[in-house]
C-alpha cells in the first residue's frame, strides 16, 4: 500500500514537471499565435490575451513579405537538400560498412573531422567559390554545398553497423549484389534512422539563415528565413507583421514535425537498446 502511494506520488510529480516544461516550451508559440491574430494597433495591449481576433495581419504579412515565393523557394531547397543528403549518406555509409577498400578507416575519420569545422569558418571561402562558379542568386548555390554531410554518413553508418554480417552473406548466397542488398535489406532495416536523418536535414535546411543571406541578393531567391528578415526590415513599426510571418513559415515545419515525431524519436534512440 505504502509503495503504491509512493509510486502514485512520484507519478503525479512527474506529470506536474512535464506540464510545467510543456508550458515553458509552448509559451512563446502561444504568444506568437495570439500576436499574429491581433490587429496591428492592439498587439501590445494585453499581449497574453486574445482580443479582436482577425486574420488580416496574417494576410498582410503573406502579401507584403512575398512569403508565397519564400515558401516555394525554401520547399525546393529543403526537399533537394534532404533527398540528396539521404541518398549520399546512405551510399557513403554503405561503402564504409559493407565494402572493403584500402584506407577505409582513414577516409571515414577524415569525413568525421569535417564535423569539427564550424560552418562560419568556411563561409567566406565557400561564398567565393559560389561566386566564381556564378552560382550566387541560384538554387544551385543554395543547395549544392549541403548535398552531403558527415553527420548523415556517421548516423547511417552506425545503424548499418548493427546489421549482422551473416545477413549480408546470406543475401550474397541468395544472389543479391550490393545495390540489391542496399535496397532490399539495409535501407528497409534502417528506415527509422533514415527518416530521422531526413527530418533533421529538412529542419536544418528550412531554418538556415546565414548562408542564404550571404549568397542571395535577389529577393526572388529569398528563403523563408531571409524573407522574414526582409519583412522585418520593411516593417519596423509593425512588429505584428513579423510575428504573423513567423507563424506562416513555422506552420509547414510544425506539420512536418507532428507527422514525423514518432520517426524522429525512434531514429534518435535507434541502436540505444539491443534487439
Amino acid at each position: 500500500m505504502a509503495i503504491d502511494q509512493i509510486r502514485g506520488g512520484r507519478k503525479i510529480g512527474r506529470y506536474v514537471l512535464l506540464v510545467v516544461m510543456a508550458a515553458i516550451v509552448l509559451f512563446p508559440i502561444y504568444v506568437m499565435v495570439i500576436g499574429a491574430l491581433k490587429p496591428g494597433n492592439k498587439v501590445l495591449v494585453n499581449p497574453l490575451l486574445p482580443s479582436n481576433v482577425t486574420f488580416s495581419t496574417i494576410t498582410r504579412a503573406w502579401r507584403s513579405g512575398h512569403l508565397a515565393r519564400a515558401l516555394v523557394n525554401s520547399s525546393i531547397v529543403a526537399l533537394v537538400v534532404t533527398t540528396a543528403q539521404v541518398i549520399t549518406s546512405v551510399m557513403a555509409a554503405y561503402a564504409f560498412v559493407f565494402l572493403k577498400f584500402p584506407g577505409r578507416t582513414v577516409v571515414f575519420v577524415l569525413f568525421l573531422a569535417t564535423l569539427l569545422v564550424p560552418l562560419e569558418a568556411t563561409l567566406t571561402v565557400n561564398r567565393r567559390t559560389m561566386q566564381s562558379l556564378g552560382w550566387l542568386n541560384s538554387y544551385k548555390g543554395l543547395t549544392v554545398p549541403f548535398l552531403a554531410t558527415a553527420f548523415g554518413i556517421f548516423m547511417i553508418r552506425q545503424v548499418f553497423l548493427t546489421i549482422p554480417k551473416e545477413m549480408r552473406e546470406a543475401a550474397s548466397m541468395d544472389g543479391l549484389g550490393h545495390i540489391g542488398f542496399l535496397r532490399e535489406v539495409a535501407v528497409p532495416l534502417s528506415r527509422p534512422t533514415i527518416g530521422a536523418l531526413a527530418l533533421f536535414a529538412f529542419l536544418t535546411s528550412w531554418n538556415q539563415y546565414l548562408w542564404p543571406v550571404l549568397i542571395t541578393t535577389n529577393s526572388d531567391y529569398n528563403t523563408v528565413q531571409t524573407g522574414i528578415a526582409a519583412l522585418q526590415r520593411a516593417s519596423l513599426s509593425q512588429p505584428n507583421l513579423v510575428i504573423a510571418g513567423t507563424v506562416i513559415i513555422a506552420l509547414p515545419i510544425f506539420v512536418v514535425l507532428i507527422s514525423f515525431q514518432r520517426q524522429l524519436v525512434r531514429g534518435l534512440t535507434a541502436g540505444a537498446v539491443k534487439g
Binding site: E166, E169, M173, P188
Partner: peptide
C-alpha cells in the same frame, strides 16, 4: 565463382533471416 553461382546454400548459426 561467385557464391550465388556455386549452387550452394548456406544455413547460418544466427539464421540470418531478414527480420522485416
Amino acid at each position: 565463382v561467385l557464391p550465388k553461382d556455386r549452387d550452394v546454400a548456406m544455413v547460418f548459426q544466427s539464421y540470418a533471416l531478414y527480420p522485416h
